[in-house]
Amino acid sequence: MTAPARLNPAATQFIAADVGGTHTRVGLVRPGNGAESAVAVLAHRKYVCADYPSLAAILAEFIAGNGVGIDRLVIACAGVVLDDQVINSNLPWRISLSELRRELGLREVLFINDFQANANAAQCMAPGDSTLLTPGVSESAPGPTLVIGPGTGLGAAVRIPHGRGTVILPTEAGHTAFAPGNAREVDMLRLAQQRGQTHVPTEYFVSGPGLVNLYSALCTLNGVEPSLRAPAAITEAARRGEALAREAVLTFCALLGSVIGDLATIAGAKSVFIAGGILPQLKDFLPDSEFHARMLDKGAMRPVMERVPVRLIENERLGVIGAASWYLEHGQYESGDNGSDAGANAPNASGRQQQTQ
């Protein structure tokens, strides 16, 4: 096998996929040029994961329609890779990177954490691409940026300025222990524990499925049988003024604010981006909720939190753009034997190991 040579990404197109527990978004991409952004999306499609038996089936369909002849793929997905397997409790099917490469006839398959991708994309976004959620607090000091999003799970990453570039630290923040902030939330935690949850993760309540868990817990605490089973149904009921649905949505917003405050405090974040997920459907509830109050309620750190702007990014292509941006920024490797184990475990710019088979 010949020594690895640096791939010139400017001469190639490739596939970037944003893989979630509910939807997978796939794009055919190339580097931008001239007045374009850093990444040009040539084709894009959104798939319902439950409609397909595997990720390979989704990608095969996309390649057949848009990417014939393309032999490189980068996947953004929650979780980590361990011994070739993506460790993620929210996916409907198992993912093996080597099997994907073999089944699809690809030269190279790479993996990055989904919020590592979102953090890469967020730095490409202009202020006009986001909605300010902290009125009167729009300017941020130089420093780390927290990127977070409640979707099928709760993802987060921290973007840290470093020299002329950035270091992006992916996290598994959704698996940290849920921290109640009032007596009602303490009762919700106890109820989850009584139902067998020895470890109650933050995303048990702060995620799309978490909103359903919230509503169910509040119904139980009020001696009412839950009648709503989906986040969208709970949101619509809240808009109609149904009391427990509205309490669930407002509690969700408050909890998200609390989690953002905790993570921003830990990371020393000077700004926050919320990357899509369920929040675009709930943003009209934020002004009536304790979202910002709970974010600020960090004791001695309150004056610091008061200066942290929070913005919501609503862009369905965010994960695809971020995965592609990461690929182009850090440069992957092409080996001389058609990519067998191409670039395996080569360190990326953040010092982590990129995953490729």
Rank of each mutant, 00 (worst) to 15 (best):
A3N: 04
A3P: 03
R6A: 06
L7V: 02
N8V: 01
N8H: 00
P9Y: 00
Q13C: 00
T22Q: 09
R25L: 11
L28W: 00
A38Q: 12
H44Y: 15
Y47K: 08
Y47W: 09
S54P: 09
F62N: 01
V80K: 12
V80D: 08
D84Y: 02
N88T: 11
S89Q: 13
N90G: 02
R94E: 14
E99A: 15
R102H: 14
R107S: 10
A119W: 06
M125P: 00
P127G: 12
G128I: 02
S138Q: 10
S138M: 05
S138N: 10
P142K: 04
L146H: 07
L146R: 06
G153Q: 11
G153H: 05
G155I: 04
V158A: 08
R164E: 10
G165A: 08
T166C: 11
E172M: 12
G174P: 10
R184C: 06
D187R: 14
L189W: 06
L191P: 01
Q193L: 03
Q194W: 02
G196T: 07
Q197W: 08
Q197I: 00
S216Y: 03
L218W: 01
C219S: 04
T220E: 15
L221S: 03
L221G: 06
A233D: 15
A238K: 09
R239A: 14
E242N: 09
A243F: 03
A248F: 09
V249G: 12
L250H: 10
L256C: 10
D262M: 07
K270R: 15
V272P: 08
V272T: 15
A275I: 09
G277Y: 12
P280T: 11
Q281K: 15
Q281I: 07
D288G: 08
E290Y: 00
M305L: 15
V310P: 06
V310T: 12
R311F: 05
I321A: 09
A323H: 01
A323R: 02
Y327E: 00
G339N: 04
A344I: 05
A349E: 04
S350C: 11
R352L: 11
